[in-house]
């Protein structure tokens, strides 16, 4: 979104300097624990910190950068799903799929990452912060001492991705039964509805106004 009218208001702000300031503040405080960062000018900023600097980064963000508003915390599994997008006929043999893990903005070294977003309410910007979690024993320190609201988000993340949060008082399941096995949002957790019968949804493409070319490949 780099168009003129919509960004007029943001242009009045310090803009890039503002977000570069955020990254600089984190670099000053964390040193080489700040692994990577990405700034989209006048739009958003991503940073990635080392796993052991996660809580410290939270403190810096809250106290130095002024992002005292906690938005959310969640996890992401960068492994491509071995089941594809569930559009194939389950009776046919599974096609060959590329399974190379490719992380998103601000890079990454592991299959799973934790990411969170905090917002500075007075200067009107947000920061997305990411951290890797180890493949063999995914765990990271809890953010509750920094942002009390992280409690439920970490519970959800633990339930959905199996990521442990050291120091969390109560990592019970929120949604699923206590004895549920597996972590549903991991990519290797199959969505069974798609595995037992073919999904017809993909062919549903509706024509658009002013679009007279009707020879779409999927119609």
């Amino acid at each position: 979104m780099s168009d003129d009218a919509a960004t007029q208001e943001l242009a009045a702000l310090p803009g890039d300097a503002l977000r570069e300031g955020v990254v600089q503040a984190l670099r000053d405080a964390l040193g080489d624990a700040l692994l990577d960062s990405l700034i989209k000018p006048n739009d958003d900023v991503w940073v990635r910190v080392r796993t052991d600097a996660w809580v410290q980064a939270g403190h810096v963000l809250r106290d130095t950068v002024g992002c005292d508003y906690f938005c959310f915390l969640s996890g992401i599994d960068w492994m491509p799903s071995p089941f594809g997008r569930g559009e194939d006929d389950p009776t046919a043999p599974a096609p060959e799929r590329d399974s190379t893990i490719k992380q998103g903005y601000a890079g990454g070294d592991t299959r799973m990452q934790v990411f969170a977003r905090v917002t500075n309410l007075s200067k009107h910007f947000g920061v997305t912060i990411k951290a890797d979690v180890a493949d063999d024993a995914p765990a990271i320190d809890s953010w509750i001492p920094v942002y009390a609201g992280a409690n439920w988000h970490e519970r959800e993340c633990h339930e959905m991705f199996g990521i442990g949060f050291n120091g969390h008082p109560d990592l019970r399941n929120m949604y699923l039964p206590t004895d549920f096995e597996g972590h549903p949002l991991r990519k290797d957790f199959p969505l069974l509805a798609r595995l037992v019968k073919p999904w017809p949804g993909i062919v549903d493409v509706e024509p658009l106004p002013g679009d007279d070319a009707e020879e779409g490949e999927a119609s």
């Binding site: 799903s81 997008r85 569930g86 929120m174 949604y175 549903p184 949002l185 969505l191 999904w199």
Partner: peptide, 15 residues
């Protein structure tokens, strides 16, 4: 909570 969990985050991945 969780009595109405429908797993939309998972479902979006196959839509």
């Amino acid at each position: 909570a969780g009595y109405m969990h429908r797993g939309y985050e998972k479902l979006t991945e196959v839509r």
